[in-house]
Design a protein around this nucleic acid. Structure first.
Lengths: 335, 335
DNA sequence: CCTTCGGATGTCATCGTTGTCATCGCTGTC
DNA sequence: GACAGCGATGACAACGATGACATCCGAAGG
């Protein structure tokens, strides 16, 4: 069990025969240090393998190279990818990441953010439960970036996905491949993100001069059994759909086997949100990549920009990460 | 932008008309405080909404309620689940979690651990790249817990999965359902975990008095195309297998469609490692749950125990999380 | 030759908390 | 009645670093 107490600035200063302050100056690249002195101190630092103490710095300076990330849960595939990207980008900039799961509890979310700020995190990235999630939470000067969902906070950036584009792109893609009767399998459009996807679907239909058959819009699928029923009913229509869009990954995991079970492998499918097995099915499932990586990258970028220039004014408080369709086969089937 | 600088112990002390030290005593549940004083201080703390400053505490006390977690990547499904569980358990004990991805780079792993320790993390949980990953890293007194893979460090606990049990349980299960010709689809058994799974398979066969037909052991599948070829060749044998075990999730994602494509839905399948679509296929895939949650829970528990009693001696440096088979249909098919 | 200036460096206080030791008032004892 | 013993409290330094300000010294200007 190694027991070396790390060297302090004092040790470095003694070794280089200068005052602690001068050593501190070298550490902080203060230009007011003679080149020779600087070299001597740097040498001492190297030979003592000096590492600055973050706690002391943080105490004195009031800031720490730490960014807090508060999300629904790290266990969620979407968020885990998101965090992975954030972590790698912030790491490159010398920041460490503190994670905390809100479990979709708004009170807990507020407490976590507050405690992270208290901990002198330089900034906080939050997937807000609601737009007003952080109202009244004391934030000192820590910049906040919202991800995945829009948050209202003066000066804070929100990085979200183009939900409207998801719906529209999926629909356009199917229309381009000759489909006219396109079904939408979705959870209840009460959440903003779902609603926007519906709007995208309708906009694309409208733009192509197609009428939306409301019997094809299934906005009531919450679990897998709902999906199975929805698919069955859709297939039993006089004029069944030739294509289906599923609005989220959870539903896709139900749609795919249901369609298959129904023996309708000829039915075109586009899934919003990529998933593991998508590529290895046959035909492989065409998806709209709801890319956690892209959202994470944009969020990390926004955070780094705010950290670098805390006074910056945002061009637009909401950054939208574009939709990207990955054709794999199932979405390119002709009617 | 709220700007309240939080209250300090000094403010609390002034309000309660006691010295800072006494306020500190109350904060730390020091018994040497009169009940009336304690009440007054507690009252002041409440009315000022006092929160202790972690940086100052950490500086003075040399410890912080922070646990570092170093894993391959948070983006990996296995590790993200693992971290989620660790986070929720440590959170309940008042610890915050700092994550860092090693990207399977041993040097980076060492640097990260060292920097976390320097940061005064109370403990570190590591998925070691190799057994000797942390040799020579100065650890002060921070307890270390290894997860998923065994690490060598005097006094450190390793929490791993029962790879041998995975292989044995899968095999036994199929034998119990009447199978005699059981194939094993696997990546190269060079990694310790894979090798142990093979050993489990052989042990179960031996115990049942069955001879292992080496043509059924396919230890050369690295990607999906290898899997397809392996399945094809297995099916072309004079006496094809009636059951297949796939040794990891990645391979399962290839085995399942391949078997299906081959029209052999009657072939029994047991997959080591659970995956998303497993439940929604038909028949659903029987899996051995290589449970990140269970490993995470055991690791968090070990960490909390070490934190509570740093001098404790381990019963066994290696804790093995047992295998758990989840029957879903595909593994219960009769030959 | 003395003053002024500015670059280089040092002194001291400080961030918020806790450890060490001293102090205070009281009771109980020889 | 002096003093040990004890519970409760406070004064002070310290953790490791940085900010404000002082100081020192040689060069430039009058």
């Amino acid at each position: 069990m190694a027991q070396t107490r790390g060297a302090t600035l004092k040790d470095v200063a003694e070794m280089a025969k200068v005052s602690i302050k001068t050593a501190s100056r070298v550490l902080n690249d203060d230009p007011a240090v003679a080149a020779s002195t600087r070299a001597a101190v740097a040498q001492a630092m190297r030979s003592l393998d000096y590492q600055p103490d973050p706690a002391a710095r943080s105490l004195r300076a009031g800031k720490d190279r730490l960014v807090g990330v508060v999300i629904d849960s790290v266990g969620d595939v979407f968020f885990s990818q998101l965090v992975a990207r954030i972590e790698s980008m912030l790491d490159a900039a010398g920041y460490r990441v503190l994670i905390a799961s809100s479990n979709r509890d708004e009170q807990r979310e507020r407490d976590l953010v507050q405690s992270l700020v208290q901990r002198r995190c330089a900034g906080v990235i939050v997937a807000p439960i609601s737009r007003s999630s952080l109202d009244g939470v004391p934030l000192r000067d820590a910049p906040v970036v919202f991800v995945d969902r829009i948050g209202d906070l003066p000066g804070a950036q929100s990085v979200v996905s183009d939900d409207f584009g998801f719906g529209r792109t999926a629909t356009e893609h199917l229309i381009e491949h000759g489909h006219r009767r396109i079904a939408l399998v979705s959870d209840a459009p009460v959440v903003e993100t779902t609603r926007r996807r519906h709007e995208g679907y309708r906009a694309a239909m409208l733009a192509a001069g197609l009428e939306v058959d409301e019997r094809l819009v299934r906005g009531n699928c919450d679990d897998r059994s709902d999906v199975v029923r929805a698919i069955t009913e859709l297939m039993d229509l006089d004029e069944p759909p030739t294509a289906v869009i599923s609005t989220n990954t959870r539903l896709s995991l139900g749609v795919v086997p249901a369609v298959r079970q129904y023996g309708r492998t000829g039915l075109a499918v586009v899934a919003i949100g990529d998933f593991d097995m998508a590529e290895s099915l046959s035909p492989a499932i065409t998806v709209i990549d709801h890319s956690p990586t892209a959202v994470g990258a944009a969020a990390a970028e926004a955070m780094l920009a705010s950290l670098a220039d805390p006074t910056r004014t945002l061009d637009d408080p909401i950054v939208t990460v574009p939709a990207r369709l990955i054709p794999r086969g199932s979405g390119e089937l002709r009617p």
